[in-house]
Design a protein around this nucleic acid. Structure first.
Lengths: 240, 240
DNA sequence: CGTGGATTTGATACGGGTCAATGAGGGTGG
DNA sequence: CCACCCTCATTGACCCGTATCAAATCCACG
């Protein structure tokens, strides 16, 4: 989208504002200006970026790594709502309302974050009304995601949910390789279980079943090869 | 919020734009102007307002009655995502993206709708940037709702979900009366089941159990009296 | 090469889905 | 005004899926 990528190796690093959908309508000079307002932070794997119920007066853009947004019940059961990866952002909800975050965000891998103070972001929004539209679009996407999640968990079978989750992760973390699409799993088995609303043992069993059927092939715990994508799509789409 | 309520009996009727959160920042004259652009329609109970996958180039404001937003799988399993009542609106998602609705909306009771053509609405948005903010807020609310729903269905017990759903409906459709809060249920048992992701028989059983415990008292199929709100909140909040 | 956490596998129990039958309203027509 | 019927709700019996508990194994890392 911007030609500077090739002739400016530091471009992406310096401009965390680049490639963020909500800033897509801005000029380069403006992106640079905004980038100068950002605060950069890193988190190690497992580090807590926000805790549930904590105040949060930034808009944060994930610049590297991946993170999960999750709600946890007092008795320790965790439901993962989103898995964020590079380019995703969060904190937009607290922008206007000033409400506290109603979920926690935890790094799954080492994370680099670019943060923009709420007040700065508001100024930018006022100066660039297009951004509101982009945010509405993005929120719409998230609504879609959750609407699907509700339906999945509510009425679709476990197998179907698992297949859908694998396809979703494949889209974000997959690379084509020998023998099919290789997914570099950001989530542990337990994480995957908490994402699709089941127990870790069950994930093991179902993945085992998929492997027996030759649909996937798991290489270590953090790498899954999708051998038969069509079959997965069948499982995910044809609600049994 | 507007003083005209008392001395203008037709005010609410004429101005379907009144009392809609997203128009809260507008002047009366402007509300009137917008109201003149609206198209009014009514639907009978059970009538389909939008089918899943259908194009929809209105923003619709529910002026009376109630409706459910639902996704249905090919094999007929329905998951209810939202229950809309007077003052709620929908269709905002298709505003910008032009995407098709990814859920259907069906009247639960006779519904009166005020519709605004997409193009008109866009014009209004441009003239009143505040509206974008309101929409972002409202979308944020819906995200919260769904995030809770995902967690509820994913990790909380059936009993807990049912209690939470009753409290939610009580907030919208409840009136204080003799013996406690009376909920005028817009949803049938089957609807309630589809809302919390279970089977109608199970809803019957669990409601029966709640009645045995003296927590609720059901009067006919469409009216439930909450006798012990505290106990319900316990069930809803203390995830078993 | 050992240690601890994650994963897999196995055995068991229970919640809740499904099927089937019965019961309660509420509207319709005689 | 009553009897009938159709729909919705309730109740019961049974069984499957999956959570849970327990143990073995694998793997990553020091």
């Amino acid at each position: 989208m911007m030609e500077c990528n090739l002739n400016c190796k530091n471009c992406l690093k310096k401009l965390c504002t680049h490639s963020i959908p909500i800033f897509a309508s801005l000029e380069y000079a403006q992106l640079e200006k905004i980038a100068n307002l950002t605060v950069h932070r890193t988190y190690e794997k497992g580090g807590s970026i926000t805790a549930e119920g904590e105040g949060f007066d930034f808009v944060a853009i994930l610049h590297g790594g991946s993170a999960k947004a999750h709600k946890t019940t007092p008795d320790g059961r965790e439901q993962i709502l989103y898995v964020f990866s590079a380019g995703d952002f969060f904190g937009e909800r607290n922008l206007i309302s000033g409400k506290k975050a109603d979920y926690g965000i935890t790094a799954l891998e080492p994370v680099e974050l670019c943060m923009l103070y709420k007040d700065d972001f508001k100024k930018i929004m006022v100066q660039n009304p297009d951004i509101s539209i982009r945010i509405i679009e993005e929120l719409g996407e998230r609504l879609s995601h959750l609407e699907n999640a509700v339906q999945n968990i509510g009425v679709r079978s476990l197998e179907s949910r698992l297949a859908a989750a694998l396809l979703e992760l494949a889209a974000k973390y997959g690379r084509d390789g020998a023998g099919g699409l290789t997914i570099n799993m950001p989530l542990s088995r337990e994480g995957l279980a908490n994402y699709i609303g089941t127990a870790r043992e069950t994930v093991s069993r179902k993945l085992g079943a998929l492997e027996d059927d030759g649909i996937i092939h798991s290489e270590g715990a953090r790498s899954i090869v999708v051998a038969d994508r069509k079959a997965l799509e069948q499982l995910a789409g044809i609600y049994s």
